[in-house]
Design a protein around this nucleic acid. Structure first.
Lengths: 352, 352
DNA sequence: CTGAAAGCGCTTACAG
DNA sequence: CTGAAAGCGCTTACAG
C-alpha cells in the first residue's frame, strides 16, 4: 500500500493537489474543491480526497491560492521602535485578531533611516490586503502615506491621525481623555497643574494637551508648564528633574510656590518616569503631588507604581480597525474610542 | 502620451510584467530579467524596461515569484504571551535583521489554547522557509515540534533548548551565566543566597539554576531557597513576599537569621519584581541584600532599578540564529553565547 | 543578449 | 456533482 504513495512521508518534496488526485483517483479540481469551504462537492468525494490528503500529508499551498484568488490574506503590521510597551501589546493582539479571521500578519519595521513609504512599497510586492501603521514616531514625513493608499491598499494609522489627510485611522478619543485627566486632577483639589508631553509633532500629544488645557481654562486655570519631547521613560524623568531645577533656581527659599500639585503625563511610560523622578526628589505621591497617565500599560498596575491612568480600549480599537479595513470608506476623520479612567493610587482622593 | 498607458495611474488594477513589456516594446521575459539581479540582460534593455515600469508604477509580484522559484522569502516568527519585555525587543530586532537580508517576517502567535504545532502547520501553507519559535512558555508540549522540522522547514528555538531533541536552537550560555551570577554574589561577600526561578519546565530556568547551585557548592554552600514558578514580574514580587512571610513566621524575634543576603532572579523581570517587593518590605538594596538578574532588558537600566544583571548578547544571538537557519545542520546541541556581566547598583561592592 | 514557451500549484468558469 | 482546461504573474531552461 505504501508503494503507490508518490511521496514518502517525511521527504522534503512538496506534495501537491495532483499527487492527491492521483492517490484518490479523482480529478485535481476535486482536490481543490475538497479544501474550499463553500464548494460544490459531494460529502463522499470530499471525504475520499481528505483521506488521501491525510495519507500523503498534503497541505494546500497558500501562495498558489493567493495568486489565482487575488487575495493574499496578508496584512502588514508596520512598527517603529518599541520603547513604549503599549505597542508590543497592541501588536500581539492584532496578530491574534488577524489569525482569528484566517489572515496572516506580515511584520515590518520602519525607523529613522527607512521611510514608511519605502517599507510599504516593499510590503506591497507581497500583495498585502491592508497595512496597519503603528506610528511610534511620525511627523512631517507622514503625508507620503497618502500615495500608498492610492495604490489600492488601504492603510490604517493606529493610535494617531493626520489632520490634513483622509487616511483611515483608529485612535482613542485623546481630546476627551485630556479633558478627563484635567477633570480628575481638578476634582482631587489640584490647582497648579503641569503637563509632560510626548512628541509634539503627533496628534496623540496635541489632542491630549488641547483637551487638558481647555478643561483647565474652563476653570479659569492654565497649566504651570507643558514641556514636551518624546513618549519615553527617560523623558518623563528628565522633564520632572528640569521642572524641579528651574524652580529651585528661580526662587530660592520658598521654591515650592510654583511647584505643581499635579502632573499629567502624556502617556504611562512618561508618567512612570515622572513617578521615579519624584521619588528621587523625595516628593510624596499623591500627598504632595498627584500623577495621572494615559494608556494603562501592564506596568502601570504594578505595586511599585499603582498609576492612576486613562485606559485605551485596546480590544475595541483593534476590532474597529479590522472592521474599518474590511470596508475601507475614506474615513470621515479618525474613528475615536473613549478612554476609561482607571483609579489607582497616584491621584489624591477628592476632598470632602 | 498618457493615452497608450494601459493602466491609469492610481487605478487599483494591478500592473503586470505583460503591461510593462507592451509599454516598453520588449518581451515579457525581458521585463522579468530587468528585475532579476544577476540576470543576463544588456544595460540598455534593462534601462528601457525600468523606465517603462516606472511610468506604469509596476512592482514585481512576490507571490508569483515565490511560486516559481519555490522560495517564499518568508520566515515565521512565533511568539507567545509577551509579558517579558525581552521578547518584543528580540522580535523587533529579528524583523529588522530579516529585512536586511531581503526576507520577510510572518508574525504568528501561540498560546495555551493553540498548540505550536498547529500554528506551525498553518504557517507552512505560506511556504515559509524557516520558523523561529520564541517559547515564552514551552514545556511538555514541546516534543511535537520535532514533527514539523521533519516536514522540511527548519525550526529554531530561540532562548531555549529541548534536551532530548535535535532541534536547532540558539541561546545564551545559561549554565555559565548561572555560575557567573553566583560568582558575583559570592565575591560581594554574600553567603546566604536565594534563587527565584521562572517556569521550572524550561531549559532556561534549569540551566541558570544548575550553574548557580554548582558554583555555590564549590564554595561549600547551597541556596537558602529556590522557589520557582514563572518568568513574570508578579511572581518576583510574590516569591519575595513568600520568603519574607515564611521566615517571619518561622522564627520570631531573630527572624533575620535565615533571610538571604543575596537573591538571583532568574530573569530581569523577576528581579525587578524582587526589587519592588524588597522596597515594600523596607529592605535596603544592596546594603542588606544584593540582587542580580538575567537578560538586561531596557527597563533594568532605569534610575529606579539600576539592576546589576547578565546581558544576553541579543544581536550576536540573532545573527547566529539566522546563520544557522541558512545552513540547517542538525545541530549538535544548542548554539550557546556567553552572557556579559553588567555592573549597576544592586550588588554590593566586593569588600576590600 | 533576446524571445517563445513551459510550468510553479492552485481556482474557477465551462461543459457535461 | 464532476472533470478538462484556462489562467493567476512570474522565472528559467531552450533555441536562436
Amino acid at each position: 500500500m505504501m508503494i503507490k504513495t508518490p511521496v514518502t512521508p517525511g521527504s522534503s518534496q512538496r506534495v501537491t493537489s495532483h499527487d492527491v488526485s492521483r492517490e484518490a483517483g479523482v480529478s485535481q479540481s476535486a482536490v481543490s474543491r475538497a479544501f474550499t469551504p463553500g464548494a460544490r462537492i459531494s460529502p463522499e468525494m470530499r471525504q475520499r480526497v481528505l483521506d488521501a490528503a491525510q495519507r500523503l500529508g498534503y497541505k494546500p499551498n497558500a501562495i498558489a491560492r493567493s495568486l489565482v484568488t487575488q487575495r493574499s490574506g496578508i496584512v502588514a503590521l508596520i512598527v517603529g521602535e518599541l520603547h513604549n510597551p503599549f505597542y508590543p501589546q497592541a501588536l500581539s493582539q492584532f496578530a491574534q485578531a488577524l489569525e482569528a479571521r484566517g489572515k496572516r500578519a506580515l511584520l515590518l519595521t520602519h525607523d529613522v533611516h527607512r521611510d514608511i513609504q519605502e517599507t510599504l512599497e516593499a510590503a506591497s510586492s507581497y500583495q498585502i490586503e491592508a497595512a496597519i501603521v503603528f506610528p511610534t514616531r511620525l511627523g512631517s514625513t507622514a503625508p507620503s502615506l497618502g500615495d500608498v493608499s492610492q495604490g489600492g491598499v488601504p492603510v490604517l494609522l493606529f493610535n494617531r491621525h493626520l489632520p490634513g489627510h483622509d487616511l483611515l485611522s483608529v485612535a482613542c478619543d485623546n481630546y476627551a481623555g485630556g479633558r478627563l485627566a484635567a477633570q480628575v486632577l481638578l476634582d482631587s483639589g489640584a490647582r497648579k497643574l503641569a503637563f509632560v508631553g510626548g512628541d509634539p509633532d503627533t496628534s496623540t500629544h496635541q489632542d491630549r494637551l488641547n483637551g487638558f488645557v481647555e478643561r483647565l481654562s474652563e476653570s479659569g486655570l492654565s497649566p504651570l508648564a507643558t514641556p514636551s519631547l518624546s513618549f519615553q521613560y527617560d523623558w518623563g524623568v528628565q522633564a520632572t528633574l528640569n521642572l524641579h531645577g528651574a524652580l529651585a533656581g528661580g526662587s530660592a527659599g520658598d521654591g515650592d510656590r510654583d511647584w505643581p500639585d499635579a502632573i499629567f503625563g502624556a502617556n504611562d511610560i512618561i508618567a512612570i518616569g515622572i513617578l521615579d523622578a519624584l521619588h528621587m526628589l523625595g516628593r510624596r505621591v499623591p500627598e504632595e503631588v498627584s500623577v495621572i497617565g494615559f494608556d494603562d500599560i501592564q506596568e502601570s498596575a504594578r505595586l511599585a507604581y499603582r498609576l492612576t491612568t486613562i485606559r485605551q480600549p485596546l480590544e475595541a480599537m483593534i476590532e474597529d480597525a479590522l472592521a474599518a479595513l474590511d470596508d475601507p470608506q475614506p474615513g470621515h476623520g479618525p474613528r475615536l474610542h473613549p478612554g476609561e479612567l482607571i483609579w489607582r493610587d497616584t491621584v489624591r482622593a477628592a476632598k470632602g
